[in-house]
């Protein structure tokens, strides 16, 4: 198992280098001189040239990238063009909000989707099954930002039950954002659980277990779910990634001061180091999430563990 985890960890390094490089190159294509953004458009040529020199903007791209990576390893993501604050602490300040939102949404999805998928599979073509599958189809089709607006309209404007934004009410503030973010993930997870459960419960060993006299629920959980859950775990990893991306939109609707809003503010003010920092941190987080999924895989599927013994 250690070998397996180690190998996964080592495989992450080139991927992280690749991700940061791609993002670095893309953001370098941004039109406009960063020196002019910092100094304002009326600055004279001499000061601009001096600042460009200080920031190392005239160096070759690879050198600039190398410098950035060296900083990244030390936890230094440069300084904001706008208010000169260090990027890394500003992101870390906001990160807990994004993380709790993404994880909470994930939790909601899993808690709703997996039981729903199992029940739908065991009662295939029943009223419950068809209703929940129609709901799931709507769930994957509905755009999250529209769902957010409709939820605000219903629960905040019409019923005045839940806050429409901000963080003033503690955990209650997270309810609508988390539900918004959880919906599409939950819907696809429920569909996946249902279809892989359907595949598994038709197998011979399930019939054998039932024939041996194992109780139905035990067969479902211990025998069927354990085999059916693998594709669902893969989907969970993907969902976590999508949640982090979706958090950008959801944070902006519910005015939550998370990393996503920091990113959008950075884009509006053309604060490239801030944008770069947010994207890099979020991408690293997602890579870590995928790593965790791979490790969970190793635990759930003993065959994988066996390969690295």
């Amino acid at each position: 198992m250690h070998k397996y985890i180690l190998k996964r960890l080592l495989m992450m390094i080139p991927v992280l280098i690749g991700i940061t490089f791609i993002i670095f190159v893309i953001l370098n294509m941004t039109p406009g001189d960063p020196a002019l953004i910092i100094l304002g458009s009326e600055a004279n040529d001499e000061t601009v040239a001096q600042l460009r020199d200080e920031l190392g903007l005239d160096d070759p791209l690879l050198l600039q990238y190398g410098r950035y990576m060296l900083g990244l390893v030390k936890g230094d993501l440069g300084q904001s063009y706008i208010n000169n604050r260090a990027i890394f602490p500003s992101i870390m300040e906001r990160l807990p909000i994004t993380l709790s939102l993404a994880l909470l949404a994930m939790l909601v999805s899993v808690v709703v989707a997996i039981p729903l998928g199992i029940i739908s599979a065991t009662k295939q073509y029943s009223f419950l099954d068809s209703t929940s599958m129609v709901l799931c189809l709507i769930g994957v089709s509905i755009p999250s930002f529209w769902l957010a607006l409709m939820l605000i309209l219903f629960f905040s404007v019409n019923l005045s039950l839940l806050p429409s934004g901000g963080l003033n009410n503690g955990i209650v503030s997270y309810i609508l954002p988390a539900v918004t973010l959880a919906t599409s993930g939950a819907a696809s997870m429920a569909r996946q659980t249902r279809s892989s459960m359907l595949e598994v419960i038709r197998q011979d060993y399930i019939r054998t277990a039932r024939a041996k006299g194992v109780r139905k629920n035990k067969v479902l959980i211990r025998h069927a779910l354990k085999n059916a859950i693998m594709p669902v775990i893969t989907l969970m990893g993907l969902t976590l990634g999508r949640n982090v991306g979706g958090a950008v939109v959801v944070e902006s609707i519910f005015t939550l001061p998370g990393t996503g809003r920091l990113l959008l503010e950075g884009i509006r003010s053309k604060d490239i180091p801030m944008v770069m920092g947010c994207v890099v941190v979020l991408s690293i987080l997602i890579s870590i999430a995928n790593l965790l999924v791979d490790i969970v895989y190793g635990f759930v599927d003993p065959r994988l563990k066996g390969e690295y013994r």
Binding site: I22, I26, L27, N28, R242, V244, V279, S283, I286
Partner: peptide, 21 residues
């Protein structure tokens, strides 16, 4: 391997980055 790296960046974040740039 290059495709894998592109796959590791979530689509929303990727699209936002490109549009920003």
């Amino acid at each position: 391997r290059i495709v894998d790296i592109f796959m590791a960046i979530p689509s929303t974040i990727m699209a936002i980055t490109i549009m920003a740039a």
